[in-house]
Amino acid sequence: MALPKLAVYKFASCDGCQLSILDVEDLLLDIASVVHIANFPEASREVVEGPYDLTLVEGSISTPHDAERIHEIRRQSKYLVTIGACATAGGIQALKNWKDTDLFMSTVYAHPEYLETLETSTPIKNHVEVNFELRGCPVDKMALVEVVAAFVQGRRPNIPEYSVCVECKRKGTPCVMVSHGTPCLGPVTQAGCGALCPSYNRGCYGCFGPMESPNTEMLAAAWQRLGASHRDLVDAFRGFNAYAEPFRITSDHHEALAVAKGE
């Protein structure tokens, strides 16, 4: 029986999530034994034509060309999984969604007339139907293996949607907000990184995006009691997952307050 065909595509992104696939090292051989790596330009120049059974998409949609290309990829894919903060939320480049793109182009490029770009950087799900989203900046490599294994075995991936706090507590890491007053996005951020930053006594940066039921406004209030300004909150929520709706609403709210208060 032929193995299911796997394709990996890149849109606006840094390649870090694709590299996580190569980073699984010896497990890569196990992956290659259960799926046919048919189209993965970063790993092999050999490209087998579609359609594909499992397609992993990295990156956000930021050009008219990409906005077209994703539809063709969707047509060629039975099961489409987006990987990383760019593909699931628009990425760090979604910060441009709050700015004037023409101004950037004329400032950075000598001949902006050669460029074709969109006003926004948006997640893949805003353009086509997505079957599963794997979060993270970058994604966790073992979570990627889990997604591939679950696909091959015809089951739902075991990927948590609760807060980073659960991972901190399971690891035995004392809460950085409670024990030393360090602002942390962990309570509103989806688990998956193994609560990396708090185990080094730092607050969470929200790399995995909003958790399943994020109470961002109440966390923002707790940050303010620790001394954070509205401007600090705008910066915190406008990170790798700035355009994810709960983070976007909260950063917009505090930006309006920062302006009103002259911060």
Binding site: Y162, S163, C165, V166, K169, R170, C175, G186, P187, V188, M211, S213, N215, M218, L219
Partner: peptide, 13 residues
């Protein structure tokens, strides 16, 4: 419910 973060810290500790 408005104040709770549903972060699960209370149950973990």
């Amino acid at each position: 419910g408005d104040r709770c973060l549903a972060c699960a810290n209370c149950t973990m500790v």
